[in-house]
Nucleic acid binder design. Structure first.
Length: 290
DNA sequence: AATAGTCGCAACCGCCAGGGG
DNA sequence: CCCCCTGGCGGTTGCGACTAT
């Protein structure tokens, strides 16, 4: 890779905050001539700025119909939901928020939302409970090769912040009557989170809800692994701690748990493919996997 | 009142993809 | 097909405003 030439003559270009006069010049020029070729805009508008800087100033601040007030709870919800789903693709997220720019959304995420999530014990990167993320990291260290027991892998989880979107992406299976009424189980039957919580509380409540739900099914899977009995339905219920304890011993001992286990990275990649497929319309065809 | 620390936003930087010659 | 230019994007930094000591 060669050294890229600068996008403009940096020595004669002004940097830093824009003055009201510069804003007025840029606004006046773009209002009458449109944006067109940004590299020629500063010269034609009488500005000692880089074209790139002009474009940024226009799109992030001067463009009409931009919102300059704080983010509403509904906008917060949407940002968190979309970030949980597609990650830090700020331009795509911003496109779903009329009047907001990618820079706005990115700044708001970095300064407010990520901290808010972290304070509530949610990892802002994975949107999973921090304790669970730490445990996954510990497991990675234990296994060394990057493999984790089956139960350690949970699907990438989206909170309840946008129910319509979430129901499309992650339809929750209706609990079977058997599961729902299993009063003999040492685990409480899964209860849907109450509807009157704020979005972060709901996020936490659903995390707990899904942990219970998935822990039970993973325990069944692990039972098969631990006991060697193929038909999970025929097995007596074995607690998750029992099974995972045994599985972890095998991992520590150098052996990998057979069946039902998968690579941590593979799990992430698989989920990523699913997400990309679901959001193909937003991401464009280039992101589709063959 | 002075200083240090923190926060939030605007802007910059470097990389990449796409289009045109 | 290759090269160059431009626009777009995400990560990072700079700096003023605010708060705590």
């Amino acid at each position: 890779m060669g050294i890229r030439p600068p996008c403009c003559d940096k020595l004669s270009v002004k940097k830093g905050l824009w003055t009201a006069e510069e804003d007025a010049k840029l606004l006046a020029y773009v209002s009458t001539h449109g944006t067109g070729n940004w590299t020629t805009v500063p010269k034609k508008a009488g500005l000692k700025r880089c074209g790139k800087s002009c474009r940024l100033r226009w799109t992030n601040y001067l463009r009409p119909n931009l919102k300059h007030e704080g983010f509403s709870p509904q906008e917060e919800e949407l940002i968190v939901t979309l970030h949980a789903t597609i990650g830090s693709r700020w331009s795509i997220i911003a496109n779903q928020l009329p009047g907001r720019t990618d820079n706005d959304v990115k700044n708001y995420w970095n300064t407010k939302l990520s901290k808010k999530l972290a304070q509530r014990g949610i990892d802002p990167v994975t949107h999973r409970p921090i304790s669970e993320v730490k445990q996954s990291i510990t497991s990675l260290h234990i296994s060394g090769a990057g493999s984790v027991p089956a139960g350690k892998l949970r699907p990438f989880h989206v909170g309840s912040v946008n129910r319509d979107l979430k129901n499309i992406l992650f339809p929750k299976p209706i609990p079977s009557p058997q599961t729902a009424s299993s009063s003999t189980s040492s685990l409480l039957p899964p209860q849907p989170p109450p509807q009157d919580l704020d979005w972060i509380d709901q996020l936490l409540a659903e995390e707990a809800f899904s942990c219970i739900d998935e822990t039970e099914s993973h325990a069944k899977e692990a039972s098969v692994v631990c006991t060697g009995v193929k038909d999970a339905a025929a097995l007596p219920y074995v607690s998750w701690e029992q099974c995972f304890g045994k599985a972890e011993e095998e991992v520590v001992g150098g052996g990998m748990v057979a069946g039902g286990s998968s690579s941590f990275i593979d799990g992430i990649l698989d989920r990523d493919r699913e997400i990309v497929a679901e959001f193909a319309s937003l991401l464009g065809d280039n992101y589709l996997f063959n």
